[in-house]
Design a protein around this nucleic acid. Structure first.
Lengths: 190, 190
DNA sequence: CGTGGAGTTGAATACGATCAACACCGGTGG
DNA sequence: CCACCGGTGTTGATCGTATTCAACTCCACG
């Protein structure tokens, strides 16, 4: 198992030692990604989800007008996948690619089941993760529905100051749901 | 247990008979709600989530300008709650009230734990439900980010034709993130 | 060098919000 | 039975925020 992932599990699963974790039989493969390399294409079968060991990925959709909308940024120690596509073996609704050169640990559709078999603690962990993503997405939906572009940008700066540094502006714009031009104008007022 | 809830579990949990379900010790209480009766106030401690036996509830937030934004409609056989508030014993981010006169089955913060103890099938069921809500919320976020008000309204009609009949227009507008006036104008073009 | 991606700026445009007035309808009480 | 009322929905005029399209700068990288 990738050391970064082992460390992650150690931190989130009290009941395991490094040795126990190393002994786990999980269907995981490590892979390096170039900048802009695509892990998954919207519309194609979803083969893998990923744990990001380092670098940064994003999930996004491309609408009919060709505009990209970012759903999630995934820097180190985040998980990213098209859950629905993986679980139900349906075409992915999301594309996933690397914003920076990255190293990821890939898992497939059986991963969740196999983890459950090895320990119910994993299931608990993944339930919590899902719950947190859900809460985050809820907050985001509310903010898109109720706040102006400027407020949303400031919220983003508050919430992810590191990402705001790291990411190109047009990616942030695609996350906030505004054009790069609008974001540029917002930033001018500072 | 409320017969509507028992029927629901029977449908979603293959392994249980009615007798077994009736024997389960779950902390559930049934309650009737008047139209507009508030089950939970944004900012106050989250005591209960609800399974809707009949009628229709909604969860929503009120922003600083006093505008309401609907997160979810919950007609018969839907679950509705402020997950985060319940689980982490934090103030609720959402308000929940009854759009129509309703009958609900309330559950508290321990519900999930107690269900797990009685059978892992419950955990599985709730994981799936959570996954589905997540997917729905994702689709909605994408549609708010990428589609016009008109497109979103048509999507809503497609997805929830029944609800569109049942609900007052201004509730639908609050769900779509537009004003009642705008929705009225959109409907004129038909 | 020079080429292309990222960011900025300006002018015109579009979409939805706001504000105000009014129509419609169901219920309540005189 | 009718008058009144509040809640819901409609319509019009105006306004504001963000988009679009185009041009231009800057800079990293070949």
């Amino acid at each position: 198992m990738h050391p970064q992932l082992r460390a992650y599990f150690r931190q989130h699963l009290a009941a395991f030692t490094d040795t126990q974790l190393a002994a786990l039989q999980l269907p995981l493969t490590t892979r390096k990604l170039q900048r802009h390399e695509v892990l998954q294409q919207q519309g194609e079968p979803a083969h893998y989800g990923a744990f990001v060991a380092h670098g940064c990925l994003r999930s996004y959709v491309t609408d009919d007008k060709g505009k990209e909308h970012v759903l999630q940024f995934a820097p180190e120690n985040w998980w990213i996948s098209d859950q629905q596509g993986l679980v139900y073996h349906r075409p992915a609704m999301l594309s996933i690619d690397a914003i920076e050169e990255a190293e990821v640990v890939l898992f497939d559709a059986n991963f969740y089941q196999q983890m459950r078999q090895q320990s119910p603690e994993f299931q608990q962990l993944f339930y919590l993760l899902l719950q947190n993503s859900m809460a985050a997405m809820q907050r985001r939906l509310i903010s898109v529905l109720s706040a102006t572009a400027e407020q949303r940008y400031h919220d983003f700066l508050q919430l992810y100051p590191m990402l705001a540094q790291r990411l190109p502006q047009y990616q942030i714009a695609a996350y906030l749901g505004i054009t790069p031009e609008s974001l540029s104008r917002i930033r001018r007022e500072l």
